[in-house]
Amino acid sequence: MLNEWVEVSLPVTTEQEDEVAALFVWAGAMGVEVRDTTTLFAEDRGTTRVVAYIEQGTEKAFLERLNPVLAASLDQAEEELSARFRMVPITRQEWNEFWKKAFDVQRIGHFVIRPSWKEVVPEPGDTVFVIDPGMAFGTGLHATTRLVMEAIEQLHASGFRPTRILDMGAGTGILSMAAASLFPEARIWAVDNDPDAVETAAEVIANNGLADRIQVDLSWSETPVDLVLANIQRDVLLELNPLFQRNLEPGGRMVFSGILNDQIDEIREKTNLPVVRGWHEGEWELVVFEKPATGGQS
């Protein structure tokens, strides 16, 4: 029957996940996801699982194509590998419910993110955003995004009041929206070099009534800012660091996220600005830098 699906999955080590996911796609998977303790469909601690969704009836062909290449790539016997696959059929109805259930209301501090089909009764002080999974919201908020949202909430609580904010690598625009709600006086630039992300962010931001507060763009004309939010990754953070520092006002702050545990020392060292806050969650680190109000180390 058409449009009935099978979830095919394999437990892997973290080193193997990218390679296995790529081979799943190569072998014909319609969608692939990597699950671990931090994802919405969480695995047990220490387990990472690559999951492929394929149409029912095609799973045999999928495995026949995949298995020899994967076995060679992982340096394992084919029979041994076959035994480790898990196959779970999913009907169409289940699929819809499955996703709706998956995209439940999420809360980070006072931010509540709900899909459009789910109502919430906000608690005092809550800010509610509506984001649907169709708007490229992935499987829930990534740890690195959650860390930034906590960090900006704490910056706000400690009395920091930026007036010009750059959200670089804005993705869905969620961080810009959080900043817009916390800092009502601030002007915000949400920048991403991915045109799809820019389109999505613009739509999400407009749907949440924040289009007049946040300017979404593919590029950024340098302008002084007093808060930089950069939830990207090590290489890009280091590459953009001079650009950020050049435009950061004295007393301004930079929130860097998307950093792995073993990269944090290098990021701190190469950024060479005073660190005023750090957060970590699992393998992820966040760091908040401050440009000294007078003079400067950079």
């Binding site: 806050r277 750090g278 957060w279 699992g282």
Partner: peptide
């Protein structure tokens, strides 16, 4: 289970000034 933001703020500054570190997490194991 947040503590006072002003104390977080000064702890971060002091750690920086002393050449140490101050960080937060939601995991006791970590």
């Amino acid at each position: 289970y947040n503590v006072m933001p002003e104390v977080l703020e000064l702890s971060g500054r002091q750690a920086q000034a002393s050449g140490g570190r101050f960080s937060q997490t939601h995991s006791m194991e970590e």
